[in-house]
């Protein structure tokens, strides 16, 4: 992780010695009478031969390219499949997916769909009472209910019925978590395809295509209409 955080870590700044620099005063000194400058002139022509030829790979640049290629190839894959390595980037972008198998790439997307599904399908608002707070899963809620006993469960049900009819509490809390802001459309596509497939199984033989396409279109148009309604009513997510 430390070696991949800064890709220019192994960059060697070019070492320039004082002898390789071309002093503009040396050029100006050619017009001088060459009495005492002969030694300076010979050293200057020798320095011209020592300058780097851009067509030939020289010793000062060879380790630079070697370091870059070895640094990028030794970068470990799949350290955290959902969080991007560099903050502010897409979670799919910085990972090098060309070297891994297709199943690895597919598995990362499927795991992202699964974690987002767990996050969406647990209704935190309805179950967000005093007894069930600080829980993020059904198992944690079940443990809390077992700890509180029957009277606690009854209080919780009363509170749940009260929260259904209370829009102020619904508006007060921030509902969108960080994982949901990283949206994707793979999960909706999978669920929509499964729903239309299952519904078209039981249809009549000559109506199967109609049911499939109808349910598919209905789901997407319905999602667009519901989103439009919320946004036109002033919702900002």
């Amino acid at each position: 992780m430390a070696c991949s955080s800064n890709p220019y870590e192994h960059y060697n700044p070019p070492q320039v010695e004082d002898d390789d620099l071309i002093d503009p005063d040396d050029g100006m000194q050619f017009s001088d009478p060459p009495t005492s400058k002969n030694s300076k002139l010979t050293s200057f022509t020798a320095n011209l031969d020592d300058l780097d030829d851009p067509l030939q790979p020289t010793s000062s640049r060879a380790p630079l390219t070697g370091n870059i290629s070895s640094g990028s190839s030794s970068r470990p894959l799949n350290e955290s499949y959902l969080t991007s390595r560099f903050p502010g980037e897409d979670r799919r972008a910085p990972t090098n997916t060309i070297d891994e198998s297709v199943w690895e790439t597919l598995r990362r997307d499927l795991l992202a769909v699964w974690s987002k599904m767990r996050e969406v399908l647990y209704p935190k608002y309805l179950f967000g009472g005093s007894m069930l707070e600080n829980t993020t899963s059904f198992r944690g809620a079940y443990e809390n209910i077992r700890g509180a006993g029957i009277s606690g469960a009854r209080d919780e049900l009363v509170g749940l019925a009260g929260r259904v009819l209370d829009p102020d509490a619904l508006l007060a809390q921030g509902n969108m978590s960080e994982g949901l802001r990283d949206w994707d459309l793979w999960g909706p596509l999978i669920f929509c395809l499964l729903l239309s497939l299952f519904l078209s199984f039981r249809a009549d033989k000559e109506q199967k295509e109609l049911v499939f396409s109808g349910v598919f279109a209905m789901v997407w148009i319905g999602e667009a209409v519901v989103t439009m309604q919320i946004k036109l009513l002033g919702g900002n997510m």
Partner: peptide
């Protein structure tokens, strides 16, 4: 707000999962 539009569509699509279970139960009659 193109991003938040897709966000909302994504969340509504994820909440279709219980209906997928319902359709699966319908397949098994």
């Amino acid at each position: 707000g193109n991003s938040s539009f897709a966000q909302s569509v994504s969340i509504i699509g994820y909440t279709l999962f219980p209906l997928v279970i319902a359709a699966l139960l319908s397949v098994f009659n």
